[in-house]
Design a protein around this nucleic acid. Structure first.
Lengths: 355, 355
DNA sequence: TTGTAGGCGTTATCAG
DNA sequence: CTGATAACGCCTACAA
């Protein structure tokens, strides 16, 4: 072996390989990058052998500078704690991304959008740190998404989308999710349903996924021949909601409605868990008094008490598909559908029973 | 505004700023990098203003090439699914890392070591993709860790360590964890304890954390005036263990021992959960027949049925501290302790009761 | 206080 | 089939 160089002291450059192989750096570069159509087999083998023996590794930054490609994708979470608090949604998406990244030949940069503010991240992203970016589950309208789109920076949104011709997105079939959740409840005999969402006339542009799910729910109501007021849309708001205060607020709201809904659809899985576990404190047992359906069907729903009936979506596939879509965009390949939808499925558990 | 350039078409370079400000690129660079001690206030302001107006962003790769610093850290998980299966250990550590990274001025590259093999990742890391690397919870001896150490690549191990002068590490006080878990069980009247670990004479070098925890457990036994055989160390092995087969194997092993242990210590939190939930199937109720203590005290322990008494450790602090330690090493600052230990604490829950 | 010039390691153009 | 040579964008002695 006898590498000579004192460990990390000096790195082996392409011209070292070239010299040792008795060819030029150009030739070496060609060989090592597969542009070797015009190089003699003998030279090819020799160069490769020398490169291997010397432990040559192309310098990532130099290559990026020369080619304009970093072979990196940014992955933007909302906060460092996105992986924690709101359950396993993010971890599943990220797992999908992580398995697809290397396979697609991209390294992954992981960012949070909130430190100290999105502008900082925006500058970072545009400083040529990555070739494109994956944005996960952001609330719309989102200044970061909009700003990046305006700069024509390649991006793919996961679990949301905004109205822009360059907005590519991977998501589940939210509308169908809302539909089957509602359909399930109707089939159990529930006639008045409360969907937990802060959607109203003032913010129809926000949260594409909430809008889509609500639309699906409304359509199910309609298809059942019921009038729209059988579906109510409302959610407690406030920054400091705890499981208890959240459940209390929902219970109070249920009391105010006549007739009082007997079924709830929680778009936020943790929120739904709070409900099944804390509504009893406020006089509503689950599922006896009210049925609850959640979304995502991760371990949160599986392990809540009682376990939650939930609309499942293939989060890891969604993450992986987003990587591939972004790779295609970066590499200039054709992307057939700007918004890719994965199917959903209803996992029926103990939180919903016949009325 | 009038940016002139067609969006992403051409990026603003430092010499564009220089030209627009009527100074040289050098001066611009000095100003923008805080080396402005020798620059007139007026020039400083003008350059900064122009840079802002033009939307100048230093090109990351170019800067990295010139300075030899990428301002990136690699974060190595074992697999893309590390975030999922084995519970919330990884997500908590990662959350700590993600909050500390930007604060410390490093971007984070997230890798898994298993695709397609560690050598690929090793080459990637050494190709100047990052200034240093954080390795999370690897089994030792670990060829990746060893190889990087041999190349003197800056690294910090999280939750494990290997015997090497350049091996820096952040971990919890595993020995004390083993100690307090055992002490707790002894105080409840348990006299025969089974620690679930595959540690034996043949692999004492593996899994520093298992070794340390076992040592703590042994010391607690000794401090209680009991002989060593009151502590048994064993674990079912095999790639395809399910909750059921794992619990079955443990139950069978308990039957074989006389006297049969009345308490278990599970170093792997998911494994411990499997036990409390599946041992009853095999004739051992928890906590009535056997008590179980786990490690980490994440939601896994909190939400298992019954909830698990568990040795808590500050995983996010550990992640954050690892980032800071690595940053210090990269920047050549002094790092006082090569192995930083965080304190543990026992969270007593329903899985342990007095004998 | 500011500017000139060379280098960081690759890739790409264009002769030969 | 191969080799000079010039970018890529930034940093930083050294000179002025």
């Amino acid at each position: 072996m006898e590498k000579g160089r004192g460990a990390r002291a000096k790195r082996v450059r392409i011209r070292d390989v070239a010299a040792a192989a008795g060819v030029s750096a150009t030739t070496t570069s060609f060989v090592l990058n597969g542009q070797d159509a015009s190089i003699s087999q003998e030279t090819r083998d020799r160069v490769r052998e020398v490169a291997r023996k010397l432990g040559y590794r192309p310098h990532a930054s130099a290559r990026a500078l020369a080619t304009g490609r970093t072979h990196r994708m940014g992955v933007v979470l909302n906060t460092p704690y996105s992986l924690l608090g709101r359950g396993t949604y993010h971890t599943q998406v990220l797992a999908g991304i992580m398995s697809a990244g290397p396979r697609t030949n991209y390294n992954l940069l992981i960012h949070s959008a909130d430190y100290p503010d999105w502008e900082t991240l925006y500058d970072d992203i545009l400083s040529g740190m990555a070739d494109g970016v994956l944005l996960i589950g952001r609330q719309t309208p989102d200044p970061l998404t909009d700003a990046l789109l305006k700069e024509e920076f390649p991006l793919v949104c996961i679990s949301y989308n905004v109205d822009h011709p360059d907005c590519y997105s991977v998501d589940c079939d939210n509308e169908r999710g809302g539909y089957i959740a509602t359909e399930h409840l109707l089939s159990l005999g529930h006639r008045h349903i409360l969907a937990l969402s802060n959607l109203d006339d003032s913010n129809l542009d926000e949260n594409s996924w909430q809008r889509e799910r609500c639309r699906g729910a409304a359509r199910a109501i309609q298809d059942a021949g019921l009038s729209p007021e059988h579906l109510t849309i409302w959610e407690p708001e406030g920054p400091d909601l705890t499981p208890d205060t959240y459940a209390a607020a929902v219970a109070a709201y249920l009391d105010r409605l006549t007739p009082s809904p007997t079924a709830l659809i929680g778009y936020d899985e943790s929120g739904a868990q709070w409900l099944v576990e804390h509504l009893p404190t406020f006089g509503r047992r689950v599922p006896d008094d009210v049925a609850v359906v959640s979304f995502n069907s991760t371990t949160i729903s599986e392990r809540s008490r009682p376990p939650l009936t939930s609309v499942w979506q293939p989060l890891d596939d969604i993450g992986a598909a987003a990587v591939e879509m972004l790779a295609a965009r970066i590499e200039g390949r054709d992307v057939p559908e700007r918004i890719l939808r994965f199917p959903v499925r209803l996992d029926v558990r103990a939180s919903t029973v016949a009325r």
